[in-house]
Design a protein around this nucleic acid. Structure first.
Length: 417
RNA sequence: GGAGAGGUGGCAGAGUGGCCAAAUGCGAGGGGUUGCUAACCCCUUGGGCAGCAAUGCCCGCGCGGGUUCAAAUCCCGCCUUCUCCGCCA
């Protein structure tokens, strides 16, 4: 959510930003409703003032009559005001955040800018297999029974891959805890306001699972519950930034991705993720530093695992609505001979904090909205694709990344018998 | 799922129709006093509208609606927390 004041003072900028993000907004209508709203506020406040004055005076028949009249008038203007604000807020909730100036303008993924490439692409002196073939031959997952039991894109991880999946989560979790991040196990079942507050709604409703008739949804990422963790609170500046590392299962309908990546572990309705979330003060320079810190954490984890990766600066057309700057981190996946996204690192400015009412008290006693940031620490099973494919050996076995070996209790996955 | 009790400022906690933005305590920030520190004293510590500003006004006691000339206080619905019982990983 952008503030009305900001929109009033930056009309063209906001319009252009929406255009660059390819969103339909009606800024002029919002401003029109805002004017009407302020006129009505003036009227209702005047009436209330009169009512208060009357109520403070000695009670007479005359004041009783006037009081009743005020009540009727007030009701009329209040109703009109409510309708006006409702419509204005509805339109306002569709206005996306304004990207920073250093974000490239572009129509879609083609406009993203590669800013970094790290690690050697794995070389094989044999023909490498896909993670699907590897997992099948080593009995590491069961996709047929997965879809039998769970439906399209359903899966069972089996044997060492199941252990690796859990081990990875713990490894990353522990690493970030050591860096001072507060560990959280976050709920995946969340109320609607958290999704609106995060800026998933009203845009991405068809992407989210809803539970029955309750106000309950399955979150697609721990960003949702963890960012909402401090909703409605006023934090103390000296406690900022608040850094969290959160584990949660993640659920996505993948409604817009029919027929995309239908095989294997790339695109799933259900997966696990460790996510980093930071609540910071309302200063862009500070937020940029934290953004880089999150990025370093993610890259460090990928380096630990021994994977080659690249970092993209996302262009306006490939960003989400709340984001003002975003990096995607992609690891090398040999079989498709391409990089695949494993992390997404964003600054939201105060966009989410406004929707979620997360504020902090500054040293001078005033309050302001916080900034929020988040970045993937590790997503699995997706990252297992890279581990399986990059570390496959000619004999069909798979080397386990060193950092995980003692944790999972084996250093190699090979055919049994 | 059943029974009961609650939700007031950054926190704790008074307040049961007008004298209430709301006692008191704690915390936080600013200032003062003081060789230093401690203690002590003063001020500040929700949002909106109008205004260049000084300032003025309005809203704000979980959320929404109602009663009343007047609501933190009375009524209705919802959300939520706690305690006990039941069920259960």
């Amino acid at each position: 959510m952008l503030s009305l004041e900001f929109i009033r003072n930056n009309v063209e900028k906001v319009k252009q930003a929406a255009k660059n993000k390819k969103r339909e907004v009606n800024i002029d209508k919002i401003l029109e409703l805002d004017e009407k709203r302020r006129e009505l506020i003036l009227k209702t406040e005047k009436l209330r003032q009169e009512r208060n004055t009357l109520a403070k005076q000695k009670f007479t028949d005359e004041s009783k009559v006037r009081g009743k009249a005020i009540k009727d008038e007030l009701k009329k203007f209040d109703d009109e005001l409510n309708i006006t604000e409702l419509e204005m807020n509805r339109l306002l909730s569709y206005v996306p955040n304004v990207p920073l100036d250093d974000v490239p303008v572009g129509p879609d993924a083609s406009g993203n800018v590669e800013i970094k490439k790290v690690g050697e692409l794995t070389k094989f002196n044999f023909t490498p297999k896909s993670h699907i073939d590897l997992a099948l031959s080593l009995d590491l997952f069961d996709l047929e029974r997965g879809s039998k039991v769970s439906g399209f894109r359903g899966y069972f991880l089996k044997n060492q891959l199941a252990v690796l999946h859990i081990g990875l989560m713990f490894y990353v979790f522990q690493k970030l805890v050591k860096k001072g991040y507060t560990p959280l196990i976050a709920p995946a079942i969340v109320k609607g306001f958290t999704l609106f507050g995060n800026g998933q709604f009203p845009w991405g409703e068809e992407e989210v699972y809803k539970l029955n008739d309750e106000d309950a949804y399955l979150a697609g990422t721990a960003e949702v519950p963890v960012t909402a963790f401090h909703s409605g609170e006023i934090l103390n500046e000296k406690d900022l930034p608040k850094k969290y590392v959160a584990f949660s299962p993640c659920f996505r309908k993948e409604a817009g991705a029919y027929g995309k990546d239908t095989k294997g572990l790339y695109r799933l309705h259900e997966f696990w993720k460790v996510e980093q979330v930071i609540i910071s003060k309302n200063e862009i320079a500070n937020a940029k530093e934290l953004h880089e810190e999150l990025q370093e954490n993610t890259e460090e984890i990928i380096n630990d695992l021994g994977l080659a990766y690249r970092v993209l600066l996302m262009c306006t057309g490939d960003m989400g609505e709340p984001q003002i700057k975003k990096y995607d981190t992609e690891v090398w996946m040999p079989y498709k001979k391409d990089y695949g996204e494993v992390a997404s690192n964003s600054i939201m400015g105060d966009f989410q904090a406004r929707r979620l009412q997360i504020k902090y008290r500054k040293k001078d006693g005033t309050t302001d909205y916080c900034y929020t940031l988040n970045d993937t620490a590790v997503p699995s099973p997706r990252i297992l694709i890279a581990i399986l494919e990059n570390f496959q050996q000619e004999d069909g076995s798979i080397k386990v990344p060193k950092v995980l070996q003692s944790l999972v209790g084996f250093n190699k996955i090979e055919k049994k018998g």
